[in-house]
Write a protein that binds this DNA or RNA. Structure first.
Length: 517
RNA sequence: GGCCGAGUAGCUCAGUUGGUUAGAGCAGUGGAAUCAUAAUCCAUGUGCCGGGGGUUCAAAUCCCUCCUCGGCUACCA
């Protein structure tokens, strides 16, 4: 039955000790656009996001809050779910690592790795800072007074040892290098692949994958007191969600290996080194791509809690409207680069591309149709060269957009779409339909038909990035078939369809008085 | 320190394997138009393509060197 090709895209699972911020929204948004695009393009899509809920920090936060860890997780995880709602994300699943199915999957994977001989018991030793709750490498340490060892943060460190299970990461050095060399788009952007490659080429140590110092996590099978440490627990969520360990199940067969793991650059290594090594060890297929995107700055400044300039996505949506926020984040910056979030850039971009561009194009066209064509889509006459050229360009737009989307080059994809919007404005100027009203109404009908058809296709293509706004435009045109199969000449707009009085879809944004002051 | 990458118009960036007068968007300036959310269209850039040197008939594009900025350099998601 499932003849359709599949597409599996994931966000990282977000750590519940954190509050949702623009970074989370950004990562998931990119995945949402991919997922929506692929669905419209005929794919059977699985889009996964969720929360990572284990670990010492969560255990302590819960304790500090006076609640049990599960209750704490329930509460905080819900905030990420709220974000997904607020951002209109179309995730098919929201996974939580505290779910029973996840425990099952991770423990199964552990056993497989153990059976294959890639897990062994030893002692984990290192410089630990109680204050930072973190281990530091010898090379990271600073000299304090009297030669005392200090963490880079200035905190005191002590040498601690504890029993731990290890994963034989070192055994995968060559195979990982082979992977990077043979599949050069395994990690994107390219510069990140270089970083990952040089990291691995520098030599790999085995990985500590269990702890005995806390309880809030998945127990290691048959090893009292050992709790799985973050890597193996968190990364495995990508398998859990599609039914692992049931490798014969439909979801697993349809969706593994994943097409894209979207990650922030901070967690690239775990996805581009540890994760493929785990999978190699378990003899499971590797994901096709790990994409590491960049960070946002706020008005040119690095974002940090201590600076207090964290950007709250809920507030953004409140101030500017959801679709404008979605559009700006993926249109403004080449995906993979860092970008700056400034109010002036936001307003400039949205006014230029949305209000003045796509919005005005749609409004002026539909208003002319509404007023001059008895409120219905006019019948086109014989097409002129200009008509055909515009239509041909719009008919072939999907191919170009798809090419960029498949490379996660969102800004280029939207650039291509908006170029056609601009071409339509140019076309209006050259055709001057308002003059044709008196001189040659038939020709005016043709011009307006061509424009409405262009808008139809632009709106269909806009759906992944601005679902609500695109929907409004398509509603105004009374379009029912909105999949990509309706693009091109086969789905031409039906003449005679009665439309309503058009209403603007993209409002102009104004600088607040207080801000311009 | 080592490795990697980047420095191109006021701003954000494109520039495929070296090849006609180096491009786009935004901003600016001048003009046109008036269907439309005062939106749109047209015209307009003497940019040492970071500096210097080299290879070549030919370099933003290759090599060397210097300067500046950024990233990575293992267990803080």
């Amino acid at each position: 039955m499932s003849e359709r090709p599949s597409f599996y895209v994931t966000t990282p699972i977000y750590y519940v000790n954190d509050v949702p911020h623009i970074g989370h929204a950004y990562t998931t948004l990119a995945c949402d656009v991919l997922a929506r695009f692929k669905r419209l393009d005929g794919y059977n899509v699985m889009f996964l996001t969720g929360t990572d809920e284990h670990g010492q920090k969560v255990e302590k936060s819960a304790e500090a809050a006076g609640v049990d860890p599960q209750a704490f997780c329930d509460k905080v995880s819900a905030r990420f779910n709220d974000l997904a709602q607020a951002m209109n994300f179309s995730n098919d699943q929201f996974i939580r690592t505290t779910e029973p199915r996840h425990k099952l999957a991770v423990q199964h994977l552990w056993r497989v790795l153990e059976e294959k001989g890639y897990i062994y018991a030893d002692n984990y030793a290192g410089w630990y800072s109680v204050r930072d709750e973190a281990f530091y490498a010898e090379s990271e340490l600073m000299e304090g007074e009297g030669g005392a060892k200090l963490a880079p943060t200035g905190a005191a460190v002590e040498w601690v040892e504890e029993p731990s299970y290890f994963f034989k990461l070192s055994a995968f050095e060559d195979r990982l290098l082979e992977l990077y060399d043979s599949q050069t788009d395994f990690v994107m952007p390219k510069s990140r692949l270089n970083e990952v490659r040089s990291f691995v080429a520098g030599g790999l140590q085995d990985l500590s994958i269990s702890r005995t110092t806390f309880n809030w996590g998945v127990p290691v099978p048959d090893a009292d007191g050992h709790i799985m440490y973050v890597w193996i627990d968190a990364l495995t969520n990508y398998l859990t969600a599609i039914g692992y360990p049931d490798e014969a199940g439909q979801a697993y067969k349809d969706f593994w290996p994943a097409d894209v793991h979207m990650v922030g650059k901070d967690i690239l290594r775990f996805h581009a080194v540890y994760w493929p090594a785990f999978l190699m060890a378990a003899e499971l297929p590797l994901p096709k791509r790990v994409f590491a995107h960049g960070w946002w700055t706020n008005e040119g400044q690095k974002i940090s809690k201590s600076l207090g300039n964290v950007i709250d996505p809920f507030e953004l949506i409140e101030s500017y409207g959801l679709d404008a926020v979605r559009f700006f984040m993926l249109r403004e910056v080449p995906f993979g680069n860092d970008g700056d979030f400034s109010r002036s850039a936001f307003i400039a971009r949205c006014n230029a591309d949305l209000a003045n561009g796509m919005g005005n194009l749609s409004q002026r066209t539909l208003a002319m149709i509404f007023k001059n064509c008895d409120g219905s889509i006019p019948h086109p006459g014989i097409l002129s060269n200009e008509d055909s050229e515009l239509l041909n360009n719009i008919d072939s737009l999907l191919d170009e957009v798809r090419k960029h989307i498949d490379m996660q080059a969102f800004n280029r994809a939207f650039d291509a779409i908006w170029k056609q919007s601009a071409a339509a404005d140019t076309y209006i100027s050259s055709q001057e339909p308002w003059k044709l009203k008196k001189t040659d109404p038939d020709r005016m009908y043709t011009v307006l038909y061509v424009l409405a058809e262009v808008i139809r296709q632009l709106a269909i293509l806009m759906q992944p990035i601005m679902p609500e706004s695109a929907c409004k435009v398509l509603d105004q045109l009374k379009i029912e078939d909105r999949a990509f199969t309706a693009l091109g000449a086969t789905g031409r707009l039906a003449s005679g369809t009665v439309i309503d009085k058009p209403v603007g879809v993209f409002p102009r944004l104004e600088l607040d008085a207080e801000e311009s002051a």
